[in-house]
Design a protein around this nucleic acid. Structure first.
Length: 536
DNA sequence: AGCCTTTGACCAGCG
DNA sequence: TCGCTGGTCAAAGGC
């Protein structure tokens, strides 16, 4: 298991262990009048030993110097990360003392001393009612220069509440995750103060020991805009038996996104991130409780299906066409099928030449479906289906079926031919395509071989100059599971943007979208989700 | 002339 | 077997 994997796992697990130190309160019913408890972590080991299937609450944090047996995590221990919402703009400070709609906090404080600094996380579980806004993370920092400042962060989870009906106990975990592992929001502290003079804190020591994870913190003195101020990393020195169920597929991406911010390349991008949905390919209902709605069934090796998401609504994947394709009813079965959801203007960015050969009204849909064939070569079996979807936006579902057996046209006529279908006067069966927008979906940021995500991404970016938005990279599944997987690009692969793999003729193949382009849309979509607001 | 869209007919899969 | 539905064909016409 690669260290990157381990780091992520350590992150999550540490987070979880800290979160569920008060089982009865967190898992069942949050009590708003709980006395404030401070848990001081005196060394660096967290030891979850819970195997209870339906709750993550059975963690015991043992005393320092005690011998702890570490049990491997269950396959779905981190499925709750599906609900991760990152509001990573730390510049919007809402002093806790002036926030009237914050529920009365019951605070759990975790202190992680290091050789030079101490990280304190004060987390407030929500009260019995789920507030629309959760504000409770207060970090007070005293820099090495002796300058003290206070930073309160405000988390807003409207989408989360709507979509997944999170329980109060779940917020705490997310908040802690964000606090600990989002470099823009976690500030290591060398001194702790509380902004609320009426809050009393009692200390309950929690011990950590080194083998599981080492938390390294780097502290700077930038209090308000800690763009690159704080980095919390976790190094692993013991991997065996811990990550056998690696399911944190998307966190490498999250980490890398934040690193990009440090390069000043996508500052606005990070401010727009509102939700990163993660999925697991190893979920077992019998082993863990499903804290989030189940995504549609996926075939073996099928990438996670992140459903079209506009505003705050999750659209279920109820498209009967995909089910038809999966059923193998028609001739297209066993062919590689990729579905994109794109705005009208993005459809024309397809680099291939297509000829429309049919149009059919689809039962239950006010919009007809158009059928296209690759017109570059007569024997090319690549097809393309286009259908407007009912999302209230000018969004189209573009389904690519089969693979091109040739290179792209040297003289790319797509700008003429391809777009003739969309933008010229033909008014072809796409009754359609008028407005210009951006892709409205974010999908497929996770891979079954999640540990390779940074590698894959780097490889894609490295080859960005050779690809365009319609290229696709095909990765043998087995390769994904190896440390040194190799990626090869194939220009004949069907185009893809933000693609999800629905079905493959070769179950060992996984289609990886051209992430160079995808990332742009990815970030852009988060902007859109937030309605342009840099903060949730 | 070449390539496209349109559109009704036909075909295939499924219940 | 039949009807429904969706996918494909191919003639006609447009650019």
């Amino acid at each position: 298991m690669e260290n990157d994997d381990w780091d992520l796992f350590s992150i999550v697990r540490s987070c979880k262990a800290i979160t569920y130190t008060a089982p009865a309160t967190f898992c069942e019913t949050a009590t708003p009048t709980l006395p404030i408890t401070t848990n001081t972590i005196t060394n660096n080991t967290i030891s979850p030993h819970n195997t209870t299937p339906n709750c993550f609450d059975d963690f015991t944090l043992t005393l320092e110097n005690s011998t702890i047996q570490i049990f491997p995590l269950k396959p779905n221990d981190f499925i709750e990360l599906d609900k991760l919402i990152i509001c990573s703009n730390p510049t919007k400070i809402i002093p806790i003392s002036t926030t009237s709609d914050i529920p009365t906090p019951s605070v759990t404080t975790t202190t992680i001393p290091t050789s030079s600094s101490t990280t304190t996380i004060i987390t407030t579980p929500s009260t019995t009612t789920i507030p629309n806004r959760i504000t409770t993370d207060t970090i007070t920092n005293t820099s090495s220069q002796g300058i003290s400042y206070q930073n309160s962060m405000f988390f807003n989870f409207p989408t989360l509440v709507e979509q997944q009906q999170m329980q109060p106990s779940e917020f705490t975990e997310l908040e802690k995750w964000i606090l600990q592992f989002n470099p823009t929001t976690t500030i290591p502290i060398s001194a702790i103060t509380t902004p609320n003079p009426t809050t009393s804190i009692t200390s309950t020591p929690i011990s950590f020991t080194a083998p599981i994870a080492t938390i390294n913190t780097t502290t700077t003195t930038t209090p308000i805009i800690p763009t690159t101020t704080t980095t919390t990393t976790m190094n692993n020195s013991e991997t065996n038996g811990i990550n056998q169920y690696s399911t944190v597929s998307n966190f490498p991406m999250v980490v890398e996104q934040q690193q990009v911010q440090a390069n000043q390349n996508r500052v606005s991008v990070f401010n727009s991130i509102s939700c990163i949905k993660t999925t697991t390919t190893n979920f077992h209902n019998e082993l863990n409780h499903p804290l989030v709605p189940q995504e549609p069934h996926r075939n073996h090796n099928q990438l996670p299906i992140l459903l079209p998401q506009t505003s705050s609504t999750t659209l279920l994947n109820t498209n009967p066409k995909q089910q038809k394709i999966k059923s193998g009813k028609r001739k297209n079965n066993n062919q590689m099928t990729v579905v994109n959801y794109v705005k009208a203007n993005k459809i024309s960015e397809d680099s291939w030449r297509w000829r429309k050969y049919g149009q059919k009204p689809i039962k239950g849909s006010p919009h007809p479906r158009s059928y296209f064939k690759c017109s570059s070569f007569n024997d090319c079996l690549a097809k393309k289906l286009v259908e407007k979807i009912n999302t209230g936006e000018d969004t189209y579902e573009v389904t690519y079926i089969g693979e091109h057996n040739h290179k792209k046209p040297a003289n790319n006529r797509n700008s003429i031919v391809g777009t003739s279908c969309w933008n010229m006067s033909s008014n072809s069966g796409l009754d359609v395509v008028r407005e210009v927008g951006c892709c409205s979906n974010v999908r497929n940021l996770g891979f079954p071989g999640e540990s390779n995500m940074p590698y894959l991404k780097n490889e894609v970016i490295k080859n960005a100059g050779k690809l365009d938005s319609s290229d696709m990279i095909m990765v043998p599944f087995d390769e994904l599971e190896r440390e040194n997987s190799n990626i090869f690009s194939d220009e004949s692969k069907i185009p893809d943007r933000e693609a999800k793999l629905i079905e493959s003729s070769n179950e060992d193949d996984i289609l990886i979208p051209n992430m160079t382009n995808m990332l742009d849309d990815f970030f852009l979509n988060f902007n859109n989700i937030n309605n342009g607001s840099p903060f949730c």
